[in-house]
Amino acid sequence: MQQRVKEKALELLRNGTVDRVIGWKTGEFFYDLTPAVFETAEEIEKDFVFSGFSGANLSKYAIAQSRAAGKTAIFLKPCDSYSFQQLLKEHRILRENIYIVGIACEGMLDMEKIRAAGCEGVVSVKENGEELIVETLYGDRTLSRKDCLLERCAVCKSKKVVIFDEMLGEQGDEQETARFDRVAELEAMTPEERFAFWRGELSRCIRCNACRNVCPACSCEKCVFDNDKSGVRNKAAADPFEENLFHIIRAFHVAGRCTDCGECSRVCPQNIPLHLLNRKFIKDINELYGTYQAGADMETKSPLTDFTTDDCEPSIVHERGGVK
């Protein structure tokens, strides 16, 4: 697959289908692949990489690139395709300027987990089916791929690419997973325990804004946190709690639009489990208004911006301690 993706990128550029390709290239290390826009075959030959570390969700870059002259190709893994379609639904991407290549996905790798398995001085990781051959300065190690997946891939919600012009590999299906188990655990805590949990997690935040910058739902022309009129721009936090609220506000802003792509947690340098905030919203929406997956299709209205006369009163439902 790694080779097929690169060849497809070359083919699309060479045969003139597109003028540029959004893909991944190596960063400082082999495992920190970053999104990149390639305009020539030479650039692709030199830098384009698709591997188990191509976790980065490229959909957000289509907003700007779809407005550039000519046509742009983009590679979308299943979870990325949900983000892409959600942005399309919000009129952010000009569909006619984009050529989508869907990629079947076996789950992306988490370097932290490889290190946690005791691998130090990792030089390269070779993917061999269910096995990973980890080459280190101290010799090779073999690990099971499924033990080294990103959290979001370990509980993958869907292997289906929901929007594409062309598909590489087998189209998959939506999957039943345990992705809400941790949320349920948090819900079971007392309010004091939960507050302490989140104060602890969020206390590590350094406000690098990586979560916001990577999030496809956080693609506003101007973020409220950068908006002079909001009254919070460049405002010094009065106390650490005010700083913590950044994440709560952000979760509210993306509620109903978040597809649970998990990028926020993947990029967080402090390993804050930010996806749990979003998943709590998704879980609540599913329970109160019926199952809803943002970006799954172009038609369904988000329950939070839709009103039907039989909508429940969330507060009443929660008082009853149950589902609708």
């Binding site: 919000e90 009129h91 506003c220 022309e221 101007k222 988000s302 911006t305 009103f307």
Partner: peptide
């Protein structure tokens, strides 16, 4: 709407009664 900040995402249109 503040035109410099509007994304054109249609959220407002959907909720406008």
């Amino acid at each position: 709407p503040d035109e410099l900040m509007c994304n054109g995402c249609s959220s407002c249109e959907k909720v406008c009664p």
